[in-house]
Design a binder for these strands. Structure first.
Lengths: 218, 218
DNA sequence: CCAATATTCTATTGATCCATTGAATTAACT
DNA sequence: AGTTAATTCAATGGATCAATAGAATATTGG
């Protein structure tokens, strides 16, 4: 007979799968798009073997699935709600763990120093987009952009930022976004564009959160 | 300088705190009401020392806080959203982990065998309550009931069920609830009341979920 | 101040987890 | 078939975790 404790134990297995920074990084990458082991390994700075092992733990916990495509093994999230789950975990951690706040403010320190304005919220961004007031800039790598992006967003991967400035409108404010609230790409982009004189702010979330909230994507 | 990985590592610490069945049981109990270590230990079948250790891990992860009240140490959840977090974890696990489904269906097996109807959803319950169609029965221990309960709910702790049948209306359908979807109390109550000829169903969630959803409590 | 109670701290043991390495599998290409 | 590339499997040592028991610390009431 199943007891309540058995259920908690099983639930705990899932939580334990989330209990490793590398696995959280893998999940963030997977939230952008499904990907092969090698892609995931380089995105997260893990050896292929190590990445594979972590992915299998995530699979055992029911958080990702794998399917073979030729030589490659393609992993994907099993469930859109995993993005919500991670977002909620983040919120709880940020409000209740001093250490978390400290790290976040460190990550934002450069922005503040350079006088960057506050990040743009989902609601604000949605309103601005509807009124055509802002241009959206996706600074993620091209493959992630192609797998899905915010409506009307221009893609300039961060490495090519200076080379592709022509694509950016000069007359509108620009909102840059990337993988999520902890992704460094859009921070970096905002800094560099500000120095070039652009009016630019950061979207406080990322593509996966936008999509998981049920907002329109392309 | 803080890196993204530091943030994931810190986030992982919080997830790891959720990665133990006993700690999840402690959190479920804490979701009912704040409580002293001894209360929590007996509710979860842990030794006091062991419970204390787990509680301190939860505290380090920012999930609970403690304050002294005389000789006792009272623990409470730091954040209402932890209930949502656990609920979402549960949903993800139930949809994507076969083992989970198996255990849940085992827990529900008795109900099905005894011909009990499906559990009542929040939405359905809210509608029924507004129309005065059902009577609510809270089968949790009295102290949890006193710390908060659904509006108009009658409290009959499970042990006193047969002794206090007078409090139950005979003309309405009864909806029994307890601590949450995995709590055995309301299952047991439904079974016993059905054998006595009552029309009774189970609320599929519990008091904490109802409260965390922002629905009215007393 | 002393005794009783509630809880936490410390130390220990066994279990589990993590990263790394190299061998083994699987599928595509020639 | 044999070679190569992508991934998984298996085994290792070091680190962290869980449970238990007993000592230590606060708090209340005499």
């Amino acid at each position: 007979m199943a007891s309540q404790q058995d259920l908690f134990d099983t639930l705990a297995q899932v939580a334990r799968a989330l209990g490793n920074g590398h696995r959280l990084a893998l999940l963030e990458r997977l939230a952008q798009s499904s990907a092969a082991v090698e892609t995931l390994a380089t995105a997260t700075d893990l050896s292929i073997g190590n990445a594979s092992q972590h992915l299998q733990q995530l699979r055992r916990a029911g958080l990702v699935t794998a399917s073979r495509l030729g030589k490659q093994m393609i992993y994907r999230l099993t469930d859109e709600r995993i993005v919500n789950l991670l977002g909620l975990l983040r919120q709880v951690a940020e409000t209740n763990l001093a250490e978390m706040e400290r790290l976040v403010s460190q990550l934002f320190a450069e922005d503040d120093a350079s006088g960057a304005l506050e990040a743009v919220s989902s609601r604000e961004l949605l309103a601005s987009l509807e009124r055509g007031k802002v241009a959206l800039l996706d600074v993620r790598p091209e493959d992630e952009y192609r797998a899905g992006h915010l409506p009307e967003a221009i893609n300039i991967p961060l490495e090519q930022l200076e080379a592709m400035l022509d694509s950016l409108p000069r007359d509108k404010e620009i909102v840059a976004y990337c993988r999520g609230p902890y992704c460094a790409l859009s921070h970096e982009a905002v800094q560099r564009l500000r120095q070039l004189g652009y009016r630019v702010r950061r979207f406080e979330e990322g593509y996966p959160e936008w999509k998981a909230a049920g907002l329109p994507v392309m």
